[in-house]
């Protein structure tokens, strides 16, 4: 199954991955190989079969809406690439 360079670029953009021009063909080939393989699923008719998202089909349990955790913002931000005044810094988004 051939995946064109344009298709690879479009998927990479959705996934926020940077793929170099010269790697597009190889990435497309690997992707095509996997997609072709998984299309073996087409061998079976699944009309009217309800999709199964979760093996046990349990409803997620809930708890009372109470604060259980203390404020650990400073601890959590210790590993951040760039922080200032408790805010995460990123390149300018609005000029």
């Amino acid at each position: 199954m051939a995946i064109s360079d344009d298709e690879v670029s479009a998927i990479a953009r959705l996934a926020r991955l940077e793929i170099k021009e010269q790697d597009l063909a190889a990435v497309g080939a690997g992707l095509g190989r996997v997609l072709e393989f998984v299309r073996q699923m087409d061998a079976i008719d699944t009309t009217n079969i309800e999709p199964l998202a979760h093996p046990l089909e349990l409803a997620a349990h809930r708890r009372a809406d109470e604060v259980l955790e203390p404020d650990l913002r400073d601890v959590y931000q210790l590993g951040a690439p760039q922080v200032q005044n408790a805010l995460y810094l990123v390149p300018k988004v609005i000029e």
Partner: peptide, 14 residues
């Protein structure tokens, strides 16, 4: 064709 189909097969296997 992919995700829903796979989840249907997941039910058959389960």
């Amino acid at each position: 064709a992919y995700y829903q189909k796979a989840q249907q097969i997941r039910r058959l296997i389960r």
